[in-house]
Design a binder for these strands. Sequence first.
RNA 1: GUGGCUGUAGCUCACCAGGUAGAGCACCGGAUUGUGGCUCCGGAGGUAGCGGGUUCGAGACCCGUCAGCCACCCCA
Length: 426
Amino acid sequence: MTTFRAIRGMVDILPEDTPLWQSMETAALEVLSSYGYAEIRLPIIEPTEVFARSIGEVTDIVEKEMYSFADRNDDSMTLRPEGTAGCVRAVVQHNLAVTPQRLWYMGPMFRYERPQKGRQRQFHQLGVEAFGVATPDQDAELIALSRQLWRRLGVDDALTLEINSIGSADDRARFRDALVGYLGEHRESLDEDSQRRLETNPLRILDSKSPDTQAVLDSAPVLSDYLDAETQAEFTELLNQLDALGIAYVVNPRLVRGLDYYNKTVFEWTTEHLGAQSTVCGGGRYDTLVSTFGGKDTPAAGFAVGLERLILLMQALDITVSAPADLYVVTADDDAYRHSLPRLDALRRHFPDLDIVQHLGGGSFKSQFKRADKSGAAWALVYGDAEVANNQVTLKPLRAEAEQQTVADAELESFLASYLAAAQSA
RNA sequence: GUGGCUGUAGCUCACCAGGUAGAGCACCGGAUUGUGGCUCCGGAGGUAGCGGGUUCGAGACCCGUCAGCCACCCCA
């Protein structure tokens, strides 16, 4: 008998963790809707060209990390490695950006990489994208929204905002020439990867982790010197708005991003708690992407949250949620079980918020109560012979030191109503 | 794609100069047959990731492979 394992880098999210995921998703949904962002649901597969054209042909993602395959019609398809490209494709296809649009989506992304802490081959992102506003107030709103989410989740103290402006494509082209010129003179002082990137993607050298390379960079040309006055003014205004919001930030002049479509504002939220994969959220402005997809020239900005990393961070901070049932139903025998069925049915209809777990599979009262205890339920609801005979039910508190009490069936609903009211106010 | 560490019951781990596996927790049952949490007693559960090699004999040594973890790279 062969046993199967999940594919490398594809992980099951188990029942012990899903309550935390759900609470995070609920919080995200509330924050997003409080800012007027609407959900869009997108395909997981797109034509390969969607990603190649937007992310950049020479990026690592496109060159070696995509799950691409030929479909039955021999067209090249790719499991989405990120969400922005597909979102922009949809915005153009459906003409969604005739007026400003605020969108979000959540779901799995796929990148063929070596797994490590905070990095899987199937992982999940929350993507937030805003179309149609060119001014920095949009950037500020996106950042404020993300900070609001961190606060809701209790992780804001553990996150640092790094921010930079990388200007227009023209600005970067001029800067790139200067940088390559300078670094070319110090080629032998650069680490091997950076030497290679001198030809392929020189801007990525800026965030090299090699100390030698960083030392060389200390006297290198600075990107901000190559930005035009308007871009610099916008960046300053963005920082002023962040100040007004009381959002602390670190301007990191060497922050560049790995996807080609970014321009002007780029930012990352990072943490010390996750080891090497410290970026929990990253994004920026991408004003030219809509037009490269054939849409009308439309400014845009957005960010993506790595949900596994966010969960990891919450766990590192000991943020836990549990979802024990309210009632665990214990029945004496088959007769009592059948007796309980219509009563529980009615209870579930009248109290949709009440979590009622029925013991199945029979067993002694003792073993049923053991299960009731382990379930974490607040109460055991007991249908024994006497209760069935008298149309009563016994409520035994499992968490509190209090006597169990037997009430008539007719009184159960008011009893539970007051229990729920008390739970709500607590 | 590169490197380091690891791979024994559901989980966390141990043992042994290489002689054919154990603990804790979890699980199941019981301690006067309508009541949990504590304690005690008992039980079930592993072809030691997989394949090959060395050996009279390997979970223990060697090789390969797969997987996990961490780091590089890259990114969320």
